[in-house]
């Protein structure tokens, strides 16, 4: 089995459970919010669940990138930089408009999914160019 597949397998072994925990955490928080029997402090504590899940999957991603060989690592790094560039530019631009004009407010919560969306597309395009299958790990 080649490097890319091995590293991706190890990545998914952590990524999939982390995403499930994240989604369940977000669902539970959304459900609990506003319920009179649920104290606000409990919501704060519950928020730690998706945060922990994010740390786990980002650590898995860090390990994945470190385990790749130098060429594949360069592709992933470039894709992440493109994702970061798009999200930073969009968030800064939109944030400025929120301060100066009456544009609708976008919760900062969407910065993470936005990054992964942009990173995924960039990774898919760069991998295709390099003759690899798939997008971000």
């Amino acid at each position: 089995m080649d490097h890319h597949k091995q590293a991706a397998k190890r990545y998914f072994r952590l990524f999939i459970p982390a995403v499930i925990v994240y989604l369940v955490g977000v669902f539970v928080i959304s459900w609990a919010e506003g319920k009179p029997f649920f104290p606000t402090n409990a919501i704060y504590i519950l928020t730690l669940i998706p945060v922990l899940a994010i740390f786990v999957w980002m650590w898995a991603q860090w390990r994945y990138v470190k385990e790749l060989d130098e060429y594949l690592r360069a592709i992933q790094t470039e894709a992440m930089m493109i994702g970061l560039m798009i999200v930073t530019a969009f968030a800064s631009g939109w944030g400025l408009m929120e301060l100066m004009t009456d544009v609708p407010r976008i919760p900062i919560f969407f910065a993470g999914p936005g990054f992964y969306f942009a990173y995924g597309i960039a990774s898919f395009v760069l991998n295709k160019k390099a003759g690899l299958k798939g997008g971000c790990p």
Partner: peptide, 26 residues
């Protein structure tokens, strides 16, 4: 390419990119 990749401990894609001059090795 896969055999050479194994010997050098890199992926087949890396060998392909090196051969085509798309990537300069470290």
């Amino acid at each position: 390419q896969a055999v050479l990749g194994e010997k050098l401990n890199v992926s087949r894609q890396t060998i392909n990119a090196l051969e085509k001059g798309r990537y300069d090795p470290s």
